[in-house]
Each structure stands twice: as C-alpha cells, then as structure tokens.
Amino acid sequence: MEAERKKDAAAEEARQPHTRACEQELAMSWPKVGEAGETGDWRTVRPVLDTSKCLAAQRGKLACMQCWMFCPDAVITRTVPPGVNMTYCKGCGICVEVCPAGAITLEPEHEHEEEHGRDAHAAEEQGSADGDDQP
C-alpha cells in the first residue's frame, strides 16, 4: 500500500490545489475512467493489428468483432477496423487468441518501445486483485 500512497501523493501534487469541499459522511465513489491508473503500464506485451488480415477491415463493414466482445477490459472499439485504447489495454492477449483470422499478434513491449518510444509511463508495480490487502 506504500506504493499506492506515494502514487496518490504524487497525483495530488500534480493536481494542486485540491478543493477540500468533500461533503461525504459515508464512503461513496463516482465513476472514473482509469480508476486503477493507466493500466496500460501493466503490459509487457502489446496487441498489434494487421488490418490486411482483419475480417472486418477486409469486408469494409462490421463483421466478426470477437476481439471487441471478449476483451475483459472494454478497451477495443466495435469499429472497422477495431481500435485498441493502449492507455488501458493490459496486454492479456485474449484478443489474439479469439481472433479467427490471426490478425492480431503480441509484440514484446520493449521491442515496440525501441521502435516507437513508449507512450505511457514506465511500468510500475503491477496492480492486481489477488493479494493480502483485500476485504
């Protein structure tokens, strides 16, 4: 949790000044994209789409969309061709496995970085729901 605290403190500084107008008397949360931060940082591999193989792209209309349907993080768009939000894609590789056309491959993140530079921050401690500090 120390890392979490440091991250919070850093985020807080970046956002200065915070208003102190919190009126909560019980704990309530509101929706936020990137609740756990930029989960793209968790990736060690990234999905790369070859549009020449994608069934939807080939047909030029909505088709297949298995990648969209199975992405556990809702970061793929149901578009032609499908797009991936790399800020939050965790690099699980499910889209690669479910693609019937073999249109998506996984590239090691470091190779990709060497070629294109990294868009997000350096990878930090990988957050996960599996741990001791849970309810």
Partner: peptide, 18 residues
C-alpha cells in the same frame, strides 16, 4: 464497465460483467 480497472489482466469476471 470503464477501462483502467483493478481486475487482473485476462479476468473472466470482467468479460462476464460487461
């Protein structure tokens, strides 16, 4: 379900919840 949540990469629950 918004992107950037705390579930592990590849979590089956995430797909189901969507």
């Amino acid at each position: 379900m918004l992107p950037g949540n705390r579930a592990c990469a590849g979590c089956g629950l995430g797909i189901a919840f969507r």
